[in-house]
């Protein structure tokens, strides 16, 4: 089946993808809620900013990340000074790139699900004595679970498939930043590595298919319960 080096690529891809979408989850859900329910000046601008990575060339996103996280950059400088760590050429950097690229997709799915929560249920909960925080925890959050899961799955699939921003930001370091697409690309450049390309491509397709099927199944299971007022 897969060689040891290929398994390493798969393991790393799962690590990077999983970390990216878990780390992006709270931010994505907060943004989704803000965009769905918030009324504040600059909402359009925030909406635009969140969606930028979806439309800007990934290379540009990678380059911007590089500017921010370089040792003399605003974030990279702090990381180095306070914690003595750098994310450049590290899997953590790959996870950051993947998370930034996945964020807009996650926000979109979650925003739709927050918008689908009937505000009349939330006001009913308030008349029953629930604070805004409790309304969020007991009504809004559980009712938007299907969309939240869908967003996670989309985000995960997108993270595992991230290429342009990752290779620009943290380059291709085998065993550290070489995820599935980077490994496939590298194998394509090597004469005689067609079999590796086939196997890794098959793994990519299988991973995506499993993720999508799982989210569809979960969504249906919950969806059935959550209908009618």
């Amino acid at each position: 089946m897969l060689s040891a080096a290929e398994w390493e690529v798969v393991r790393l891809s799962l690590l990077v993808g999983g970390t990216a979408c878990l780390a992006a989850l709270p931010l994505a859900f907060a943004l989704a809620w803000l965009l769905a329910r918030g009324r504040f000046p600059g909402k359009l601008l925030l909406d635009g900013l969140v969606h930028l990575p979806l439309v800007v060339p990934p290379v540009v996103t990678g380059w911007v990340l590089l500017l921010f996280f370089a040792p003399n950059g605003p974030i990279g400088g702090c990381l180095e000074r306070w914690f003595g760590v750098t994310v450049l050429f590290r899997w953590t950097g790959a996870a950051i790139a993947a998370g930034v690229m996945a964020l807009p997709l996650m926000v979109r799915a979650m925003r739709l699900s927050v918008e689908a929560v009937d505000p009349r249920l939330e006001s009913a909960a308030r008349t029953l004595g629930a604070s805004r925080a409790r309304v969020f925890r007991t009504i809004t959050l559980p009712l938007s679970l299907p969309g939240l899961t869908a967003g996670m799955v989309l985000g995960f699939a997108r993270s595992v498939g991230e290429f342009g921003a990752t290779i620009t930001f943290v380059s291709n370091v085998p065993g550290e930043t070489e995820t599935l697409p980077l490994a496939i690309y590298a194998a394509l450049q090597r004469p005689g590595a067609e079999e590796t390309v086939w196997r890794l491509a098959a793994v990519s397709v299988a991973l995506s298919l499993i993720a999508l099927t799982a989210s569809e199944w979960l969504g249906r299971r919950w969806g059935r319960r959550l209908h009618v007022l």
Binding site: R120, L121, S131, R132, R225, L226, L229
Partner: peptide, 20 residues
């Protein structure tokens, strides 16, 4: 006074039961 502290027992026109 915010809605959650008014102690109104409000029965809406539609039942608004929590579906979950």
């Amino acid at each position: 006074v915010p809605a959650e502290r008014r102690r109104a027992g409000y029965v809406f026109q539609e039942p608004r039961l929590f579906p979950h």
